[in-house]
Structures are given as C-alpha cells and as structure tokens.
Simulated assay, not measured.
Amino acid sequence: MHSNRCSIRCPHCQERAATMTSRALSPLVREIYFQCMGIECGHRFVAHLGIVRTLVPSMHPRDDVMLPMVERRTNDIIVARTPNTSAPPPGITQPAARQPVPPAFN
C-alpha cells in the first residue's frame, strides 16, 4: 500500500525519520521537526518544506501567494486526476492567469 505521507531518511544512519511536529513559517514554507527512528542513532533535526512552482493554477488563488507558472519538466512527477476533477463544472471558467509581481526592495 502506498502512503501519501512525505518521508525522509536520517542523513547519518539512513533509517526512517518520523515527524515530531511542524509549524508554518509562511503560506509557502513549513518547518518540520524530525526524529530518527534508529534506536542507536536518535538524531533529531529540522527541515524546511517549500512550495516552489505552479504546474496547474489554483481555482481559488490568493492575492498574497505568488508562485511562478512553469511548464512541466521532464522529471516532474505527474499524478493523474480523477475524471470528476479534470475540468471545472459546466458554467465555471478558469481564473485568468496572474503575472507574479516581484517584491519591492527598500
């Protein structure tokens, strides 16, 4: 059986690491606390999970979330959509593509 949970290995002993807790740093970045499951290792570490690009735009975009829209790359993992989510319901149109606005630097 395939799990949808993200997994990571300990960088030292390569045993599975379990998520202890996590917290949102922004809408695009999450900090995740891990503990190695290797009894003789016990390493605890922190990782960041970041959303980096858009493959298919959201049907409910937020004004404060700006991600580059990129073409699929040859090494992207493609997950097939179920037939009932592959297209919006009749009468619903896709939102217009928004151009990302770079942040202002002072």
Results as ranks from 00 to 15, higher is better:
residue 52 V to K: 15
residue 96 A to M: 07
residue 56 V to W: 10
residue 96 A to E: 08
residue 77 I to S: 13
residue 6 C to D: 09
residue 21 T to N: 05
residue 31 E to G: 02
residue 95 P to L: 09
residue 10 C to M: 06
residue 38 G to R: 10
residue 6 C to A: 12
residue 16 R to F: 13
residue 70 V to M: 06
residue 100 P to C: 04
residue 76 D to A: 11
residue 92 I to T: 13
residue 67 L to K: 03
residue 53 R to P: 07
residue 94 Q to Y: 06
residue 77 I to A: 13
residue 75 N to G: 09
residue 73 R to I: 00
residue 62 R to H: 00
residue 30 R to Q: 04
residue 31 E to S: 04
residue 14 Q to N: 08
residue 82 T to L: 05
residue 73 R to H: 07
residue 39 I to F: 09
residue 74 T to A: 14
residue 47 A to W: 04
residue 6 C to N: 15
residue 85 T to A: 05
residue 20 M to D: 12
residue 53 R to Y: 01
residue 68 P to H: 03
residue 27 P to F: 01
residue 85 T to Q: 04
residue 34 F to E: 12
residue 65 V to G: 08
residue 83 P to T: 02
residue 101 V to N: 05
residue 77 I to N: 13
residue 31 E to A: 02
residue 47 A to V: 11
residue 22 S to C: 04
residue 43 H to I: 07
residue 64 D to A: 02
residue 20 M to K: 14
residue 47 A to L: 15
residue 42 G to N: 03
residue 8 I to F: 09
residue 53 R to S: 12
residue 68 P to M: 00
residue 95 P to R: 05
residue 37 M to G: 09
residue 97 A to V: 13
residue 7 S to H: 09
residue 76 D to R: 06
residue 92 I to E: 10
residue 19 T to I: 14
residue 2 H to L: 11
residue 9 R to P: 01
residue 60 H to C: 11
residue 52 V to P: 13
residue 94 Q to C: 03
residue 78 I to L: 15
residue 15 E to N: 15
residue 67 L to W: 08
residue 36 C to T: 05
residue 11 P to C: 06
residue 83 P to C: 01
residue 80 A to L: 09
residue 102 P to I: 00
residue 72 R to F: 10
residue 82 T to F: 10
residue 88 P to Y: 01
residue 51 I to K: 12
residue 2 H to F: 07
residue 96 A to P: 06
residue 69 M to S: 01
residue 7 S to K: 10
residue 48 H to I: 12
residue 73 R to S: 04
residue 81 R to V: 03
residue 17 A to S: 14
